[in-house]
Nucleic acid binder design. Structure first.
Length: 595
RNA sequence: GGUUCCGUAGCUCAGUUGGAUAGAGCAGCUGCCUUCUAAGCAGCCGGUCGGGGGUUCGAAUCCCUCCGGAGCCGCCA
């Protein structure tokens, strides 16, 4: 299979040499999409070459076009508009690629070999003191999709989750439950475990605030009140007890964490994400100290006069970073250093992706530099996939103000909306309720996932809870609908295998558009993976679906009387469905049989 | 104070390393179901690409500056 670029870039370099007597690097030759209002399949911008040759662009374009047409059989014709050389590529070229691709069920993906790089993707990484919300949903969907894209692009991928199961925040929930819970359990309350624990986290905050108010009324300063409030001092004491291994505290911690995990598991299942391995901070938070000690020995790190161990990053314009407190205890960074080193021993990765919000950009920048300075060359392969926050019309989600969009609620509302639409469309006549619910889940999740993944991960995005997510237009369900249309045609055709057709079959313009789009699929996978951007794949699938629907409106498949043409179309639409299915699967989105 | 990112149609977003008359969806208005599922297709409406300079044959894209918004710079996580 030959790509358009490989066909042309060398030839352009030759043409420039032959026509203008200038030497250029074939790799520097770039093509762009031809403006739809002109004829052509690809376009060369000739300004740079015209300038070098001292010709006017129009004339230079004509000379290059003539050379290419004479020397490359698949360059059928050309036209020059201003400085743009539009090349028309023969149907033979597109058809040959198409036929080759249609033989291969997994066309576009690259199967990893034993030599392929190993990439670890760490994502989700929730705290165990409250339920998952919309921000976590974006994180989870991104992490899963990026993993799938990297895999499709030919990497070995491990998906891991580092659960933050310890610390003061968990102790807050534990303390509030102990004081106010009256032994309430998920069973007794009928609440999901993570919701129950989250409820006590809120309770803690409520009581803590009340205590602060009381202390302020007694003349304490804000700072004193916050530090002296009994809820806080008791939570801190509980954390000390936890670290000291107090059996009662540990038992409570294990009990409540187990509730949370059961809750998370059901949310993960609904989202369709998975992990190859879970890590828990309770088991990793002490890592890293020895690394800091070594760094001190080797002189990379310094001990400050107050006893704290620091990494001096003033040369990088980043200040200094404390890695061990003056009392010898570790900070978050210490733990992350240790975790990274251990992780690398366990999985000798070429790349390690951290899917974490952009508020931690500074942290990961420092982490990478610190590891490199400590002599770990592999630190170069660490990458912070820094995604933007999901914002509401009134700004950031704030748990204290009750504006947090709960993940389970959101999923349920999407399913309900899809369910209502299924009934409204009346496609549910012969469907059992369970089947309808499954379909509603598929459609609702497609809408939600596509909504969150179609936006460039790096950018912050807006979600308005008052307006439900669309099911029409540039959406997941629209793309699903496209595949369902194709499956429907195939079902009715009665065919089970790809029919044969001659490569010389007539190709209409809309069909050629589809051939060209399908030809891009492998490059889209590579592009999306290289940029860690599911949005690239989402847009491609939309383009393909949109173009198919235009084709569907223009041309009939089942009623086409010319058999060669019908067979070609059957294969064409099969390939369209196949590419969309694969691409959407990389986004974690399923395609239903009917809708 | 230092630093990073963002500002494109009423709303949500695309716009490859600078390239042709800046594109989609939603919302609004028109058409198209006796023909493979209308969650579709076609059309209309909608823009001083935050403002102003500069570089360039060419700028939404690069540089400077101003305005507006967000993040980070902790012996928190």
């Amino acid at each position: 299979m030959q790509t358009l670029e490989s066909l042309l870039s060398g030839a352009v370099a030759q043409a420039v040499q032959a026509v203008f007597n200038k030497t250029i690097d074939p790799a520097s030759v770039v093509f762009q999409q031809t403006n739809p209002q002109f004829e052509g399949d690809t376009t060369l911008v000739v300004f740079p070459y015209a300038k070098a040759a001292g010709k006017n662009p129009e004339e230079a374009g004509k000379m290059l076009g003539e050379y290419l047409q004479a020397h490359i059989a698949d360059v059928e014709s050309f036209n020059v508009v201003k400085g743009f050389l539009n090349l028309v590529i023969s149907n033979r070229f597109w058809m040959a690629n198409f036929i080759e691709a249609s033989q291969n069920e997994s066309f576009g993906t690259v199967a990893p070999t034993p030599e392929s790089p190993l990439v670890v993707v760490e994502y989700s990484s929730p705290n165990t003191n409250k339920p998952l919300h919309l921000g976590h949903v974006r994180n989870n969907l991104l992490g899963y999709a990026v993993g799938a894209l990297l895999q499709a692009a030919g990497n070995h991928v491990k998906l891991v989750n580092l659960v933050n199961d310890r610390g003061i925040h968990i102790c807050k929930s534990m303390l509030a439950w102990q004081k106010l819970g009256n032994g309430e359990t998920p069973e007794s309350s009928g609440m999901k475990g993570d919701k129950l624990v989250g409820k006590y986290y809120v309770e803690f905050d409520k009581h803590y605030k009340a205590e602060i108010a009381a202390l302020l009324a007694n003349g304490k300063t804000q700072d004193e009140a916050e530090k002296q409030a009994p809820m806080m001092t008791e939570a801190q004491e509980m954390l000390r007890q936890w670290e000291a291994g107090n059996p009662e505290v540990k038992a409570l911690w294990e009990k409540m964490n187990a509730w949370v995990y059961a809750g998370f598991e059901s949310t993960y299942k609904a989202m369709g994400v998975r992990f190859d391995k879970f890590y828990y901070e309770s088991q990793t938070y002490l890592l890293g100290k020895s690394i800091v000690e070594e760094g001190l020995q080797s002189g990379v790190l310094q001990k400050r006069t107050d006893g704290a161990v620091i990494l001096n990053l003033t040369a990088e314009k980043l200040d200094q970073k404390v890695l061990l407190r003056s009392d010898g205890t570790s900070v978050y960074m210490t733990q992350d250093l240790g975790t990274a080193v251990e992780r690398r021993k366990e999985f000798p990765f070429q790349k390690h992706i951290y899917v974490v919000g952009n508020e931690q950009e500074h942290h990961f920048k420092v982490l990478k530099i610190a590891l490199a300075k400590l002599g770990h060359a592999w630190a170069d392969g660490l990458h912070h996939l820094s995604y933007g926050m999901v914002e509401l019309p009134e700004g950031k989600m704030k748990s204290r103000e009750g504006t947090v969009v709960d993940a389970d609620d959101l999923i349920a509302s999407m399913e309900a909306e899809a369910f209502a639409l299924i009934e409204e469309k009346g496609i549910d006549k012969d469907m059992a309720t369970a089947e309808k619910e499954k379909l509603a889940h598929q459609i609702g999740m497609a809408a939600l996932k596509y909504f969150l993944l179609k936006v460039d991960p790096k950018k912050k995005m807006m979600f308005n809870p008052k307006e439900s997510i669309d099911l029409q237009g540039n959406t997941g369900p629209f793309i699903q609908y496209t595949v369902v249309r194709i499956r429907n045609i195939w079902r009715k055709s009665g065919l089970t295998a790809l029919p044969a057709f001659p490569a010389t079959v007539t190709v209409h313009p809309k069909e050629k558009e589809l051939l060209k789009l399908l030809d891009q699929f492998p490059a889209v996978i590579q592009n999306a993976a290289a940029n860690y951007s599911p949005a690239v794949m989402a847009m491609y699938c939309y383009d393909l679906a949109k173009t198919f629907n235009q084709f569907y409106d223009l041309h009939d498949v089942l009623h086409e009387t010319n058999q060669d043409m019908q067979h070609f179309r059957m294969v064409l639409i099969k390939r369209v469905a196949n590419a969309i299915e694969m691409g959407m699967a990389m986004l974690g989105i399923e395609m239903p049989e009917r809708m």
